[in-house]
Amino acid sequence: MLHKEPDLTIRAAKLYPGDGAAALEDQVLDIRDGQITAITQRRGPVDQEVAIAAPGFIDIQINGANDVQFNNKPSADGIAQMAEGARRGGTAHLLPTFITDEGRRYQQAVTAVAEARAAGVAGIAGVHLEGPFLSPNRPGIHPPDCIRPLDATDIAFLSAANCGTCLLTLAPECAPEGAIRQLSEAGHTVFAGHSAASFAEMQKAQREGLSGATHLWNAMSPLTSREPGVVGAVLASEMLYAGIIADGVHVDFANVGIAARLKPDHLCLVTDAMLTLAGKTDRFDIHGVEIRRDGNRLSDAGGTLAGAHLAMDEAIRNMVQQVGLSLPKALQMASGNPARAIRRPDLAQIQVGLPASLSFLSHDLQALGSYADRHLHMNAIHTPEAQHVPA
């Protein structure tokens, strides 16, 4: 059998292989046909040098980026533009997230993701539908008049959807009997969110296949002395995954730290980013409600939060600098944990024989670029630094 030369070689001053493991020093990755074929310490020229290589960051909740909001442009082109913006923060894979909208308009999002994947848009792991099957008691910024119950037609459409991972956020207490089980058995990932569920209702939903919660602590019933609510159910469970927005706006960093200590293998960093991320826009509308950006805070005139202005590399820096996590554990929450949450464990490690899913950082944890689905993306602003990492 003839030896095939790699398509791409990357030297990393520090390589974090995944799952919280410590860094390996001065490693060279050989990649061919999108797979890692060798990890060595050989000398000599390579195609790209970086300070830090880690398993690709997976953003399972991103509503927009690069001046594109998914709800406003549910198309393959819109998704490609969003992905470009997300990559500037080091994201390798993402679930474009479509929030509550009129009727069955969410179906356009499912179709758009299927088309983007068929067209070869790199890094599109599937779709996240955040609504419209939410609790009217916990709408957040979602338009209340569009929130509605899940029905048989929705279940039939979603069960037949073929767009990679389908993550569905719903209020379990509002879901029809058996719906969570049907969706889970169809291969979809079901999270609780925008929910006023009790602890008992969460436990019942978990038995039916519920596997996580969306933006922990936000828009959900809180943990109180006599009713643990959604927050308590998530923190008490050894199995439920939880997305968390580590921007210091949505959740106090003390609470982020509590979640990180209780759920080191199930907490997932998400950006919940809107079109302002990597864009020029500082104000926009959600169903006629004006949203303005003030620093890293997005809200309406009444102060209701409306997504986030956050990149994945910033979330990782916050976990290290504000929460006090080790870098390997923070990286695991950006890659390995979300990979398993969406049933893609193959993306969780840097290992010979697995798909090359990589994110690159500078020594000060600024995003340098990413590699996914046979596409290398390097941030132009950081390329000079990346090329001068000592061999």
Rank of each mutant, 00 (worst) to 15 (best):
Q107K: 14
V68E: 07
G120E: 02
A51T: 14
G131N: 09
I60Y: 05
S75Y: 09
P143K: 11
D77W: 13
V50G: 01
P139H: 05
G131T: 13
I147E: 06
Q81L: 15
L94R: 10
L95I: 01
D101G: 06
G56D: 10
I124D: 03
G44K: 11
M82G: 00
I141N: 00
D101H: 12
F133Y: 02
A53V: 08
T91I: 11
D145A: 10
V127G: 11
H142G: 06
N137V: 11
V68M: 11
P132N: 06
N66C: 15
Q81Y: 00
V121M: 01
E49R: 15
L95C: 01
P96H: 04
V127N: 05
I155F: 00
A160W: 05
N71T: 14
N162T: 07
N71H: 09
G123E: 02
Q61Y: 12
L158W: 02
E49A: 15
E102W: 10
R88K: 14
V68D: 02
I99F: 09
F70I: 13
R104T: 13
A80D: 01
A54W: 03
A109P: 14
D151H: 00
A86H: 12
A114Q: 13
I62A: 15
V50M: 03
T153V: 08
R87G: 07
G85A: 09
P45D: 15
P96T: 05
F70W: 11
K73H: 15
L94W: 10
D154N: 07
H93G: 07
A76I: 13
F133S: 05
L94V: 09
P143I: 03
D47G: 15
A80E: 10
Q81V: 14
D151A: 03
Q48S: 03
A125N: 06
H93R: 03
V50D: 00
R148K: 13
V121W: 05
T91D: 01
G140L: 03
F157K: 01
T153Q: 08
A76C: 08
A80S: 10
R104P: 00
Q61W: 09
P136W: 00
H93S: 10
N137A: 15
F133N: 03
Q69F: 14
R104M: 04
R148S: 03
V46Q: 13
P45N: 14
T100S: 09
I52M: 06
A65N: 09
A116K: 10
F133K: 05
M82I: 12
T165W: 02
V127Q: 04
D154C: 09
G123M: 05
E115F: 02
L158S: 01
Y106C: 11
Q48P: 08
A156K: 03
